[in-house]
Design a binder for these strands. Structure first.
Lengths: 201, 201
DNA sequence: GCGAGTGCTGGAACCTGTTTCACTTTGACG
DNA sequence: CGTCAAAGTGAAACAGGTTCCAGCACTCGC
């Protein structure tokens, strides 16, 4: 799967692609230092060497920028995960394992995680398309982890959505210091039980 | 249960209590018109007839204010729900029914809901205590709905937490127009299955 | 090479959340 | 009463997200 991020309107010249990448990089860099509030538009512009106006041409708001950053990171994560699929047997366990892995990735860059997560949940309707992309990416990751053979059933898709809800919300809860890792782990394992309808092997 | 909102430090004179109430009222009013962005601190101050500085003395930030507004609304909801407990038999169904009822309340004031939900998920560590209060209130509502007899088991508490996660996240998803009511209903029913360990009656 | 059009730049300006401060009001206490 | 501290007021100032704009710089068709 070649990552076709934004064939939405313009094909973007090479220079422009490079600018976009510089901006995303600056964003991630600033975020990993000081989190959401450190990603200041003027700072991003300066760090990535573009004018403020240009930055806004590429990303119409700070939230758009951070959500795009999240897309980027998720894509990386997805690839990493593909290379090392979960080792567990049961789908539920596989998903839980995958999510906890993702969680550990977040722990490594808590500030970056905070910035992206805040942006994601703070996003209003104007960012819906982008947020939706992130959501689809997450869904893809979970479905991959389940390692299912055919097309997912509606019931499975429901379960996946609920898992996604839990994942996001638990992440936020942890980021704001209201839950421990252990707690998050339990919650994830709990919600993953929705996947395996009690099938006494 | 008499609602002892904030015995944290000062006992608040009557005048102060009135001010606080006026502020919360103004906040809710502005929010129900124009959502999160319409709750502008200067506007709240003016509407409630206090100086900006005073507003900030009562609520140290816009997010604090909106989270407090949510506490307030949740408390009302809780009381309403107590008066008309869910009619279903099974705990899972009771919880689902209750949450859908709450959801319908949100539909009636979508802008207000949007403002409160955005504030809640955007809140950073400095608002943790208040967010925690909201969380406890929500938990109480769900536990009430379950109508359980004794103390909840750890497993039940996990389930409740996951339900809460799902509820918040689904709410946001709906508010930003990325999911339909039907979808939310399905998600809630799905997650509520975690409550009744498959007990074939 | 030349002009049109689009993109980029630098910088000012605007809006709203937040802070600060000098001054007044209120309320409890002697 | 008079006094003092805490709380409230009004207004200015600051900060960071967002918008605007005038001018420069590329690219593409001629």
């Amino acid at each position: 799967m070649t990552a076709v991020s934004k064939p939405t309107s313009a094909p973007l010249t090479e220079r422009q692609e490079a600018r976009r990448r510089r901006i995303l990089h600056a964003s991630a860099q600033l975020a990993s230092r000081g989190g959401f509030e450190a990603v200041q538009m003027r700072a991003v512009a300066e760090t990535s060497g573009v004018a403020l106006g240009t930055l806004y041409r590429y990303f119409p708001s700070k939230v758009h920028l951070l959500v795009a950053t999240m897309q980027d990171q998720l894509q990386r994560l997805h690839e990493t995960l593909r290379k090392r699929p979960p080792t567990e047997e049961e789908p539920a366990a596989r998903v839980a394992q995958t999510l906890m892995r993702a969680f550990r990735a977040m722990q490594r860059e808590p500030q970056l995680a905070e910035a992206m997560a805040r942006a994601l949940t703070f996003a209003d309707r104007s960012v819906s398309p982008e947020v939706d992309t992130v959501s689809r990416l997450t869904t893809a990751i979970i479905l991959d982890a389940m390692g299912l053979t055919g097309t997912p059933t509606p019931a499975q898709l429901s379960a996946v959505r609920v898992i996604e809800h839990t994942w996001h919300s638990a992440l936020i809860t942890w980021l704001s210091g209201r839950a421990s890792i252990a707690q998050v782990k339990i919650d994830i394992e709990t919600v993953c039980r929705l996947i395996d309808p009690p099938n006494p092997a």
